[in-house]
């Protein structure tokens, strides 16, 4: 079949549009990478001289190290709690009818609609009213609330596609409900559970707005530490940190993609 001139025109303009959009998406990250190598304390394009000193600075700056440790702890603990609570809820929501099921679902999913700053403010007011200390647990609580809906969705999708016959076969072979849960249901749901937890961890690691409301100097997360840095200094340290930041997140994302294919996870296959 021969293509007409119009077809060629469409093909080429399509390619150009696609490349420019992808360029738009990647532009800031490329620019920030260039800026991080700028030797001067004041940014200029193109940089007049190059150096790696801002990377050294990023590593030395105390708040970043402390923030990273906090963020990793919060992401790990928060994702674990969200996984346990979310998977449990997805299971009972998928399998059973019980009182207030719909209401429970609405409340747990509401953080998808409620702006993060409202969630942060709400839990801040609540903890103050209950005279709870502003500890790291408050930050973790905020993160659990925010990432929980994503875990529930991920696990729920796996459960919906789960073949109940496996469990019935196992039961007919003498497996008690607990035995079946441990030897059949959990192993087969593992991909959904892991991808849910990984998503939760990435989201939690990146969360900024709600955290800003509930952290203090001691519990501040890496994004909050970065925000505070920009407000005080204009040098390219943060550009260097951004480049460093990309590495672990990209690695995690590629990992998810390799094992579970993002197209599947996101239902766009």
């Amino acid at each position: 079949m021969r293509k007409s001139v119009l077809d060629h025109l469409l093909d080429w303009s399509g390619r150009i549009v696609l490349i420019s959009i992808l360029g738009f998406v990647l532009l800031p990250f490329v620019v920030v990478a260039i800026a991080s190598l700028n030797d001067g304390a004041i940014l200029s394009f193109p940089p007049k001289s190059w150096s790696l000193r801002w990377y050294a600075n990023a590593f030395e700056y105390r708040d970043f190290g402390a923030g990273l440790v906090n963020s990793l702890r919060i992401a790990a603990v928060g994702a674990t709690i969200a996984l346990i609570a979310g998977a449990g809820f997805a299971y009972v929501f998928n399998r059973y009818d019980f009182m207030f099921k719909g209401l429970l679902n609405t409340v747990l999913m509401s953080p998808l609609i409620i702006p993060n700053f409202t969630i942060g403010l709400g839990l801040l007011i609540l903890s103050t009213a209950a005279s709870l200390p502003r500890s790291i647990w408050l930050v973790i609580a905020v993160h659990v609330v925010i990432v929980l809906p994503f875990v529930v969705r991920s696990v729920y999708v796996s459960l919906k596609n789960f073949e109940r016959r496996y469990e019935q076969a196992a039961e007919s072979l003498g497996g008690t409900p607990l035995h079946v849960l441990l030897t059949i249901t959990l192993p087969l749901l593992l991909p959904g559970l892991i991808s849910g937890a990984l998503f939760a961890a990435i989201l939690s690691f990146n969360e900024f707005t709600a955290s800003l409301y509930v952290v203090n100097q001691r519990t501040q997360t890496l994004p909050v530490a970065m925000y505070n840095y920009v407000r005080e200094y204009a040098d390219p340290t943060l550009a260097a940190l951004s480049v460093i930041y990309v590495a672990p997140v990209a690695a995690m994302l590629l990992l998810v993609h390799k094992f579970f294919r993002l197209e599947k996870v996101l239902n766009v296959d």
Binding site: E171, G174, P187
Partner: peptide
Amino acid sequence: PPHQRKIGIVFQNYALFPHMSVAQNVAYG
């Protein structure tokens, strides 16, 4: 409950546990 009925069941789509070998499947019960 089903696990105490001592009944063998075979389904249309077999429902073999995909994460176990043939021998492990047969040994499950």
